[in-house]
Design a protein around this nucleic acid. Sequence first.
DNA 1: ATTATTTTGTGATTTACATCACTTAATTTA
DNA 2: TAAATTAAGTGATGTAAATCACAAAATAAT
Lengths: 210, 210
Amino acid sequence: MREKLEKYYSFVFEKELIDEIVQVGVYKKLRENEILVDLGDKMKGIPLLLEGAIKIVREDKNGEEILLYFLERGDTCASSFASAISNGKCGIRATAEKESEIIFLPKEKLDEWMLKYKSWRNFVIESYNIRLNEMMETIDSLAFMNMSERLYKYLTDKAQIMRETSLNTTHQDIAYDMHTSRVVISRLLKQLENEGKIKLHRNKIEILEF
Amino acid sequence: MREKLEKYYSFVFEKELIDEIVQVGVYKKLRENEILVDLGDKMKGIPLLLEGAIKIVREDKNGEEILLYFLERGDTCASSFASAISNGKCGIRATAEKESEIIFLPKEKLDEWMLKYKSWRNFVIESYNIRLNEMMETIDSLAFMNMSERLYKYLTDKAQIMRETSLNTTHQDIAYDMHTSRVVISRLLKQLENEGKIKLHRNKIEILEF
DNA sequence: ATTATTTTGTGATTTACATCACTTAATTTA
DNA sequence: TAAATTAAGTGATGTAAATCACAAAATAAT
């Protein structure tokens, strides 16, 4: 745990803070598709992502989903931070897209560290900024792009987060994330394949052009 | 300035902090439609809204707009905070929807106060949370609602922010905010009128049902 | 190996919204 | 007061995406 913490966070956190994190943080390994945070959960702390990829989705009353963004190593979940500090509920679901490793930080420390460590203050603010910007990008996609453009962005974004050039996924799963139907995704994927940007296989999409 | 500050912020900030704000804050009155923050601006501080209503919009490369959310008294612009602290650019435009009053806080103080005042830390975190939640609501609207529902939500939300039951606006302005065409808005408004939810006038929309 | 299940492909149809083209009404300006 | 401008109403048509219905592969289960 200390090793990975130092690998990804030594440029972010002071040494003393890393020491504290090692002491109070709870290491956890997440299986693929394991739910880390669910709708309405009250967070008792926040996760710091050491390795892997986490998908953050929003769900409405009818159980329909829309992807908000992905987290990768070095990220934290700003929504949890909010929820942890204010004792409020979390409006999102966080699912491990692949096996991941996190450190869970107890909420009691969150405010304490704000006083003690400038690097922590920066990290918190920076995390919120990144998340606000991701949300704006999501809004841009929904408001300004058509399905084909959104789909291509989805594929390339996800490939980057997963650090792979092929994605192991079904058309139906993509449709859930993008809040559309499988038929639409299948047709647009075929179109992207014809344009030479991707190559389709069963349960797998190769991305040829980034 | 002190008077309004105490009126809306005395339950939020410690007395000492209010004193400091009075000392270093710059009071500014905004005319209707005055631009407070524009795309790409580098913020030298953040605005604290004393009175009025501010519209926050996102713009894409083609100059097309989409409304993100409104600010009202007691709010601050989290996006500016981000930009001010990190010296980065602001990805939004903020326009006064009606005559408004703000206090501009210089960025040098922002981090200093994080150390000194717990109420300030809470306020900053709380502001980010509110903004994240507003963005999620915007995403919900775009992803899950049809135009008619979005329009009705737009009207009632805006009426609430403006503290009026009628809005002085044109169909075209609404179309800009919602990133659609005037024709579509006119038709849907007529429909809402037939349902008895609103009453249409030239340059004015009365909301009959909230 | 045969059957069942999951995944993908594809035609046909519907619908919400976008776009075009033009009219009517209200308001402002000359 | 007439002309110009701005705001709103409305028919016709186009189009992206949603929905329905079913077929064809690929894979998993028996």
